[in-house]
Amino acid sequence: MKKILFALALLSMGVCAWAAEKDASASGELPHKNSLEAKVYRGSIVFQYYCALCHGVNGDGNGRTARLYKPKPANLIMSDKNDAYKELIIRRGGEAIGRSSFMPPWGNELTDEQIADVVAFLRSIRSPTVEVK
């Protein structure tokens, strides 16, 4: 009986090692264009280029220009706004929805895909403690 259990344990270790190796090789591949991973990655690039100026490289609202504004740019890590709201404010700007006029409308500058990617990125950096409205 002991021998059988030992053989099963060895087999199970072998299977785990094989699975780990397979994951490692898979991680070297590019994620599919429509995968969440790809969207978040592209969104992070767009965010750093266009949004970090005000919202900070970490999205915490402490960008280079933050000192110009009262109230400060939104802390996007702690934002409780849902994806639809974020898409709207990105596309139409703050003033159009009764928020800061210093949040520009990005609808003419960013493509639909870029906006969706930024929203995906923002979802990825949101604190798990935040309850989304």
Binding site: T65, L68, Y69, G93, E95, S101, F102, P104, P105
Partner: peptide
């Protein structure tokens, strides 16, 4: 020496 934001 001159800090400003003209808005959009």
């Amino acid at each position: 020496i001159k800090t400003f934001d003209l808005g959009s």
